[in-house]
Design a protein around this nucleic acid. Structure first.
Lengths: 194, 194
DNA sequence: GCTCTTAAGGTACTCCACGTACCCTATATC
DNA sequence: GATATAGGGTACGTGGAGTACCTTAAGAGC
């Protein structure tokens, strides 16, 4: 009658899965160690043996949640590719409560430089490579000048989307805002001669 | 022997001052009701009679902290004005720990639409009028086309600065980044014909 | 199969901070 | 002066982070 006590990686995955569920259901503020332990069918000891604090567990769960990154789109036109990328990012941020989770993590990591660094490296910068490949193709097609490949310029669209989530705090930015970002800001900027 | 019990506005100001001090010294996470009460020389009752929760008190304290808004600069050139505005915003956000405070407030307001609305109205949008007046003058001088007056376009610079604080999490963005934002993104965008 | 080390389970605890309840006391107003 | 109002003091209840300690199962070596 399998009492079957889980150990090692198996238990670790169970904890992470439980943490992901708590996170998506209740956000960062609602993720509690007791809650995760109960949901995973274990106790807090097993968690603290692996992650030193609630914040680090939440970060690990968030990385689990966002999962693998996707391939860069290739619609043939710059505008199409950019729209794809921005829609993808929007869908991701809109998900259950991802923007709230990220805000909570950012606030929690504010006074922990180590945690903040991990958060930046593995989350904020995620996908910046996608933008550069898409823009690179547009450069070879001659759609935009080469100077558009500067990181500061290339990341403007995603920065504006992120800003929208931070300041409006809504779930899911409407498509009209995305096209506004693209047509009123991003594309004019990329095409500007200098 | 003047026991002299404070009442009404006098006490209210004392509480707010104490909250501002706690906020600047320890950030949002470090602002505790007991701490504020002790520092103000009063007790929690007096606070809860005025603000229903820690988050609302912190928001009020933050508004007190940022104080009155300034006049729009008028250096004669668009670039000069924009640089002034961005430097001002940077100095403000860099202050003791303002970006951390704002992050904490945002995270706390994430599941309270009312609070989020107040936060937006009185903090995030603060100073957007400044940008529009500065751009308006540049339009009448003929430096940029009139279409630059769209809010989405006008607020790009400050949005990018905010993004810098959110993603880098540092205190004080270096001046080089400000000029990069202005010369590589904002001015080219404003001057782009369409 | 037996022993021994390691890790999980269980539980209870400390600490801290939010928010509330009650009762006492000073202050302003009528 | 009487009385309503608001501040002071204090003690709770609640909930969650993190810790301590002991018991018990799982696997490794022999």
């Amino acid at each position: 009658m399998g009492s079957s006590r889980r150990r090692g990686p198996e238990l670790e995955q169970a904890i992470l899965r439980a943490a992901v569920e708590e996170l998506t259901e209740s956000g960062y503020a609602g993720l509690t160690m007791d809650g995760v332990a109960a949901r995973a069918g274990t106790n807090k000891n097993a968690i603290y043996r692996r992650w030193p604090s609630r914040a680090t567990l939440a970060l690990a769960a968030y990385r689990e949640l966002i999962g693998a990154d996707r391939d860069p789109p290739d619609t043939g036109t710059l505008r199409g590719d950019v729209m794809e990328l921005l829609r993808g990012a929007n869908n991701h941020l809109a998900a259950p409560a991802v923007s709230g989770i990220v805000l909570g993590l950012l606030a929690a990591a504010a006074d922990d430089p180590d945690l903040m660094a991990q958060l930046r490296d593995s989350i904020i910068d995620a996908g910046s490579g996608l933008w550069l490949t898409v823009l690179g193709r547009a450069v070879t097609r001659g759609e935009i000048p080469e100077k558009a490949l500067k990181p500061r310029v290339a990341t403007v669209a995603i920065a504006l989307l992120r800003n929208e989530y931070v300041t409006r705090g809504t779930s899911s930015v409407p498509d009209a805002v995305l096209t506004e970002i693209i047509d009123d800001v991003y594309l004019p900027l990329l095409r500007s001669p200098r």
